[in-house]
Computed example of a mutant assay.
Amino acid sequence: MTTEQKVYQLLINHSNTYLSGEEISNQLGLSRTAIWKAINNLKDKGYEILSKPRFGYQLVDNGKLDENFIHKWMKSNFALTLLDTVDSTNTQAKLLAAADKPQVIIANEQTAGYGRYRRDFSSPKNDGIYMSILLSNQPDETLNPGLLTTATAMAIYYAIQECFHISPQIKWVNDILINNKKICGILTEGVADLESGYISRIVVGIGINYTTPLSDFPQDIQDKVGSLRELASKHHVSRNHFIASILNHFSVLYQDYQAGAFMDEYRKASIVIGKEVTIQQASKTITGTVATINNDGNLILTDGQIFTSGEVTKIRY
């Protein structure tokens, strides 16, 4: 372990307080000059380290993606892979599909992020949360991708409640909204085993406009998208903290997501129940009024039509 790594590890282990240069020197057996150089190197790499006379140094979670800060808040046992720039975290997760344990791929930027129907998903650097959860699926398990997507939406819903003390809206099946603006999308994909044909791995992709300013989005979608920027600033919640909160709630919900115990709260958060909507399903366009969303996550219209998949493209208020 390098001097820089030793200093960083000590600071993150004591990130709630200041450590004096003397304390660092005594604990690590390093000279004050070596410590000063290491701290400046860390600052050059984007870490925020406060310096206070007679108190010392304190490492601050300034939003730079950091596995150690995520683990500080995280109660679940997911393995984490943090990357600076990738094409897509879902694509990267599929490349790791042979992994034996659940893991999470998190990127600071996506150059080819995508959502449903392979639509481009704007993924500017340093501001968003782009992550994919890779899960195994046993041959004797019944996969309900719609309900898994719904459970993921609720994990993000609970994280927003926990961190920002507000309740967002949910547009069936995979969009999280605040003030009718989309701040998050979810995409669940399966990876098939070539020999047996069954879905052996599941990838749950999550894209969140976290501290993203609206000016970073393409002009044609700026009136439709929102961001958690103001809430994150007001409540001093970093990306690392919020990622951990999502994973904590997801790990609890995933254990028995197929029971759909969270569906009552999902329905309360739904922005489409009771509304006349337009649904796009493949090449078909259907208009009707939403009666409810059942415990399997399916959308039901008042005329009895049931949708296990599709996209609500318009809501009439």
Results as ranks from 00 to 15, higher is better:
200 S>D: 07
258 Q>E: 10
281 Q>A: 14
227 S>R: 02
288 G>N: 05
217 F>R: 03
209 N>S: 04
264 D>Q: 09
189 E>H: 11
200 S>Q: 12
247 L>S: 06
223 D>K: 11
282 A>E: 14
212 T>D: 03
269 A>Y: 03
250 F>A: 08
279 I>R: 01
221 I>F: 05
269 A>M: 05
249 H>L: 00
255 Q>C: 14
258 Q>Y: 08
238 S>V: 02
285 T>K: 10
214 L>S: 11
209 N>R: 01
218 P>R: 09
213 P>Q: 06
281 Q>C: 13
256 D>N: 13
280 Q>M: 13
224 K>R: 10
212 T>R: 05
194 L>C: 11
279 I>V: 15
222 Q>N: 10
230 E>S: 14
263 M>N: 00
293 I>T: 06
228 L>F: 02
234 K>N: 01
271 I>C: 15
221 I>C: 05
298 N>M: 13
258 Q>H: 06
205 G>M: 02
283 S>R: 12
235 H>W: 06
290 V>Q: 10
226 G>K: 10
265 E>K: 15
270 S>A: 11
229 R>H: 02
203 V>T: 03
199 I>P: 01
252 V>N: 00
291 A>Y: 08
193 D>L: 13
229 R>T: 06
223 D>F: 07
192 A>R: 10
226 G>W: 06
238 S>C: 10
197 G>W: 07
282 A>F: 15
188 T>G: 12
189 E>W: 12
244 A>D: 04
259 A>W: 10
227 S>D: 04
243 I>E: 05
275 K>Y: 01
208 I>R: 01
277 V>N: 08
291 A>D: 09
251 S>A: 13
291 A>G: 04
217 F>C: 04
245 S>R: 14
195 E>C: 11
270 S>C: 03
216 D>K: 15
271 I>L: 15
209 N>F: 02
229 R>A: 04
284 K>M: 10
215 S>Q: 07
291 A>K: 13
273 I>H: 00
199 I>S: 07
274 G>D: 14
280 Q>V: 15
262 F>K: 03
211 T>E: 09
211 T>C: 15
197 G>D: 07
199 I>E: 04
230 E>F: 12
226 G>R: 09
212 T>Q: 11
197 G>T: 05
261 A>D: 15
199 I>T: 12
210 Y>A: 00
223 D>L: 14
289 T>H: 00
291 A>H: 08
261 A>G: 15
253 L>Q: 04
283 S>E: 09
279 I>W: 01
195 E>M: 14
280 Q>R: 11
264 D>P: 02
240 N>V: 09
190 G>P: 00
258 Q>K: 08
297 G>K: 13
231 L>S: 00
294 N>L: 11
239 R>N: 07
242 F>Q: 01
293 I>V: 13
267 R>K: 15
266 Y>P: 01
236 H>V: 03
220 D>N: 15
207 G>I: 10
203 V>L: 07
293 I>R: 11
287 T>F: 03
253 L>E: 03
260 G>F: 09
241 H>F: 01
268 K>M: 12
229 R>S: 05
246 I>L: 12
198 Y>N: 11
292 T>M: 05
267 R>W: 14
232 A>E: 00
286 I>Q: 07
237 V>Y: 00
229 R>G: 00
188 T>L: 12
282 A>V: 14
279 I>M: 07
195 E>L: 14
239 R>A: 07
239 R>Y: 10
197 G>M: 05
233 S>E: 02
